[in-house]
Amino acid sequence: MSAPRRPREARLLARLVRGGLLLALLGQLAWSFRPSSSQALTADESLGRELYLASCSTCHGIDGAGTELGPSLRGAGPAAVHFVLSTGRMPLANPGDQPVRQAPAFSEREIAALVAYVRRLAPGGPEIPTIDPATGDLARGAQLYLDSCAACHGAGASGDSIGGGRIAPALDRATPLEIAEAVRIGPGTMPAFGERGLSPADLDAILAYLLWLRENGSRGGLQLGRVGAVAEGLVAIVVGLGLIVLVIRLTGARA
């Protein structure tokens, strides 16, 4: 599911503008931070700051207060920072792009550093949830998933279009932690589910069910992407009827 491509020229221009902007910002930064650059930043935070200034500050601002290109990070919280970085949704190639899942741009250590730095820069927001899917109640998870998640992500966790140009992604690739973070922060157009409505045990139950679904639930055979009747109809017509007609024609019925 890639974002719609823009014309090559537009991308090039955007890149040039971004590069220029970045240079200007870095210059200003170097100037303004002359005397006391690190006010007792830990080693982690310093690394995070370096990465932040290089990859995030253009849109979210040097102080994390946001710019015309990107929202403020105040109140976003470590869960959100970890989620967007570890799923490769950030950094965006272009500020206007739809964030989609891709290979993360940073290593785990770098992500941890960025999380630490943004926590200092813009405090508040949901912390990275502590999860333990192994203790989750499978049956409760199934019920919660069907009641709260399946309307968008599909009963088989296959994902689906939900309008407004959005796609609720399939849940077969995200790690349990990423799913848990998404539940708590509500990325994109997804509503956030706080602990008051969905306890940590509930969340573990949902994760347990989703993990269980990856290996199970396919007693009937090939799953056709779990998208249901659309794929079933296609198979019935093309494979089913097609196969029968093919056999008729190959076994010597006159054409």
Partner: peptide
């Protein structure tokens, strides 16, 4: 035997206040 169809165990039992997605009838 080989291709799963209408896996009702994934859809869950009917409750009047939920609807799954994608929701299509047979072709």
């Amino acid at each position: 035997g080989l291709v799963q169809i209408n896996p009702v165990w994934l859809y869950g039992p009917f409750v009047p206040y939920s609807a799954p997605s994608p929701a299509q009838p047979d072709f």
